[in-house]
Write a protein that binds this DNA or RNA. Structure first.
Lengths: 191, 191
DNA sequence: CCACTGTGAGACAAGAATGTCTCACGTGGG
DNA sequence: CCCACGTGAGACATTCTTGTCTCACAGTGG
């Protein structure tokens, strides 16, 4: 009875499919199921066996993205230490998922249905809490609302992912560029 | 001979159609030609008389967005005065077009063909020149590349437009939030 | 050797969106 | 009044995507 073995193989395949789908859809969000299947190196039939339809695939990508972001929030320990350093750790931890996040961020179809993944609300809550904590400790300015800082972080992560994928920014500078701009801004601090 | 009069009416209609299409597509980028027509208050046939097809419509929106952004660059006189104030004037001038810009920014289909509108290159050039000028005058820090600042500006404009359209940020705070974050960052400057 | 499972390839129908066409209606000018 | 023009409504074929199905093939374990 090799049922367990087959399950593990399927799980691996499923994850691999999800990864390549994320990579492809980040670059071309209108890719066909056929293109997604070919990008994953499987046939469209097998793709349909893993994900009931395109909607299920996007939902799975959404769940994956949320899981990775929440994992990044955990490993970055955003509740500890100075908020600025917490943001730095967070961006560094979330960098591998930035491309997927950028895709999901522009898939506004995800947010128009009545049943939308509550993971986004959890993430928003944790991020706004981080920025609010920074404000309360006097580390962050209070004239930029936590909600806007959260939104700006999403936008900068997406911009950074696209800029890197198109070669306009070096991949090594991803975290630095985002964190420095988000925290310090473009203006030079008077010495 | 009312040819001239009809032309002017058509031009007005065309602009009106373009505006409503921009509003709709910014919110739902996969809207049908039928939905676009209904949103503009015309029939699908008339929409097709104005724009040969969906591609032509998107291209027209692209041209409109580029024109508005370049107009904003002109009225903001980004070559004059301190670079920081120039950025402020620019964001204020570009605010009405931010939604359209956000739509075009995520329509990566526009950038994969071989013949892509060279207006983007012109805009990029003028924006990077602005940030480079700020660096050369010592106003901006030099460790954030002009290319990244340009990309970040696009991203923040898009994030701001979405945040406003979904009520997470007050419309009145649009310019302030973007400019302050882009130039000053979230970190509080030590008094 | 045989049964079972997962896979790839392809056929197929259903649906949606697009692009094109025709026709009737209303309006405004000659 | 009449005519030209733009328009709306609808029909129509076409194309693309999707979802489902069947069948043959390969690998694995008993």
């Amino acid at each position: 009875m090799s049922h367990v073995g087959y399950c593990c193989l399927m799980a691996l395949d499923r994850d691999h499919v999800l990864r390549s789908a994320a990579t492809l859809l980040t670059r071309k969000s209108t890719a066909t199921m056929d293109e997604v299947a070919k990008a994953a190196g499987i046939s469209r039939a097998t793709l349909h066996r893993h994900f009931a339809g395109r909607d299920a695939l996007v939902r799975a990508l959404e769940a994956l993205g949320i899981a990775e972001c929440e994992a990044a929030l955990d490993t970055a320990r955003v509740d500890e230490g100075p908020a600025g350093e917490a943001v730095h750790r967070l961006v560094r931890a979330i960098e591998p998922a930035a491309g997927l996040l950028a895709f999901l961020y522009t898939e506004n179809q995800l947010f128009e249905g009545e049943q939308q993944n509550q993971g986004w609300a959890r993430m928003d809550e944790r991020l706004t809490a981080l920025f609010r904590r920074g404000q309360e400790t006097g580390e962050f300015r209070i004239d930029l609302t936590p909600a806007w800082l959260t939104e700006a972080l999403y936008g900068l992560l997406a911009s950074g992912a696209w800029a890197v994928s198109e070669g306009r920014v070096a991949a090594n500078d991803f975290t630095y560029m985002i964190v420095e701009l988000l925290l310090g801004g473009a203006r030079r601090t008077t010495p």
